[in-house]
Simulated scan of single mutants.
Amino acid sequence: MLLHAIERFLRQHDMPPTTFGRASTRDPRLVFDLRQGREPGDRVRRRVEHFMNTYRRSISQ
């Protein structure tokens, strides 16, 4: 599930939810809305996954 992956990412990188939302989708409420049951569309899923993968690669170099 996407929310579980996001929550794990936030813990691993000590990132606030609003920062994650702004950086991944330009939506500071994204994580809060997902926690309240919002179902993201395919486009949002792809953007979030791309952001997490890109972020991980950039800090591991």
Rank of each mutant, 00 (worst) to 15 (best):
M1S: 15
M1Q: 11
M1A: 14
M1V: 11
M1Y: 01
L2H: 05
L3I: 15
L3N: 10
H4D: 15
A5D: 15
A5H: 10
A5P: 00
I6W: 07
R8K: 15
R8P: 00
R8L: 13
R8D: 15
R8C: 04
F9W: 08
L10Y: 01
R11D: 13
R11H: 11
Q12K: 13
Q12W: 01
H13C: 03
H13S: 02
D14F: 08
D14R: 14
D14H: 13
M15S: 07
P16G: 07
P16R: 12
P17T: 06
P17F: 04
T18A: 12
T18V: 06
T19H: 06
F20I: 01
F20G: 00
G21R: 02
R22D: 05
R22A: 09
R22P: 00
S24I: 02
S24W: 04
S24E: 04
T25Q: 06
T25H: 06
T25W: 00
R26K: 12
R26A: 14
R26H: 12
D27H: 05
D27Q: 09
P28I: 04
P28Y: 02
P28K: 08
P28D: 12
R29Y: 09
R29D: 13
R29C: 05
R29V: 01
L30F: 04
L30I: 04
V31N: 06
V31R: 02
V31A: 07
V31G: 08
F32V: 09
F32A: 14
F32M: 09
D33K: 13
D33M: 10
R35K: 15
R35T: 03
R35L: 08
Q36C: 07
Q36S: 10
Q36L: 13
G37A: 05
G37N: 06
G37P: 06
G37Q: 05
R38V: 06
E39N: 09
E39M: 08
E39V: 15
P40Q: 00
P40M: 00
P40C: 11
G41L: 03
D42K: 08
D42R: 10
D42Y: 02
D42P: 13
R43W: 02
R43T: 12
R45E: 14
R46T: 10
R46G: 02
R46A: 14
R46H: 10
R47E: 15
R47F: 02
R47D: 15
R47A: 15
V48C: 13
V48P: 05
V48M: 08
V48D: 07
V48E: 05
H50I: 00
F51S: 05
F51E: 07
F51K: 01
F51D: 07
M52I: 10
M52A: 07
N53A: 15
N53Y: 01
N53L: 12
N53H: 08
N53E: 13
N53K: 10
T54H: 10
T54Y: 06
T54D: 14
T54E: 14
Y55H: 14
Y55P: 06
Y55C: 03
Y55T: 02
Y55L: 03
R56N: 11
R56D: 11
R56L: 09
R57F: 07
R57W: 05
R57A: 15
S58I: 03
S58N: 09
I59H: 06
I59M: 09
I59Q: 12
I59S: 03
S60A: 14
S60R: 13
Q61R: 13
Q61L: 11
